[in-house]
């Protein structure tokens, strides 16, 4: 059979070659997609958000917000129950970076901690609603359950003196003592 179809349509060889190529393409197709480790945020947005969150909960004897996984928490929620806040984050983080570049000549992620504090202080006055939103989400992530991505190793609970997981003996439902509970 010639390599060209009799009627100008797909030949058997072309079809089989195409199928094989399609299979390989499907295999490596994921590689061509977005490579960010985040579900919603871009890497640049994540750096800006980390700087903002770390001014809400900075590191001391205990980890900062970003070290405790707050960005994981916010990112996962923005991909799920907080979808409604996506636009607010996309726009708000741009505004924060713009403010930082205007006042300090660099994006907030590249500033020193002191300048980050000044930038966030100014931003909190200028853009109160978004700052409040991020602050609330930061505190949710830092003090909430580790199962949602933040509060890594329950670090904030240990900071508060709470043992997590708590040491608790098994529930004393001993039937030999007449308990019916």
């Amino acid at each position: 059979m010639s390599s060209r179809g009799k009627t100008g349509t797909l030949t058997r060889r072309q079809l089989l070659s195409g199928a094989a190529l399609g299979g390989v393409s499907l295999t490596i197709g994921c590689r061509l997609g977005r490579s960010s480790a985040w579900e919603f945020l871009s890497d640049e947005q994540a750096r800006t958000l980390a700087a903002l969150c770390d001014q809400v909960v900075p590191a001391d004897d205990f980890p900062s917000a970003s070290q405790a996984g707050v960005l994981d928490y916010i990112d996962r929620q923005l991909a799920r129950v907080y979808r409604r806040h996506r636009a607010a984050y996309s726009d708000g983080l741009v505004r924060l970076d713009t403010l930082s570049r205007t006042r300090f000549g660099r994006g907030i992620a590249a500033l020193s901690v002191d300048l980050q504090f000044q930038a966030v202080t100014a931003f909190a006055e200028q853009d109160k609603s978004f700052f409040e939103l991020v602050r609330n989400h930061t505190l949710e992530g830092y003090y909430g359950s580790p199962r949602h991505g933040g509060n890594r190793d329950a670090v904030s609970w240990r900071m508060l003196g709470l043992a997590e997981p708590p040491i608790r003996g098994r529930a004393p439902y001993d039937l030999t003592k007449g308990s019916t509970s």
């Binding site: 079809l15 089989l16 195409g18 199928a19 399609g22 299979g23 390989v24 499907l26 295999t27």
Partner: peptide, 21 residues
């Protein structure tokens, strides 16, 4: 038959390629 064979090849390539990858 060609379509079926093509699909089989595509699935085989995808799975074996994915396994390797």
């Amino acid at each position: 038959a060609l379509v079926a064979a093509s699909l089989a090849i595509a699935v085989t390539c995808a799975l074996s390629g994915a396994s390797y990858y």
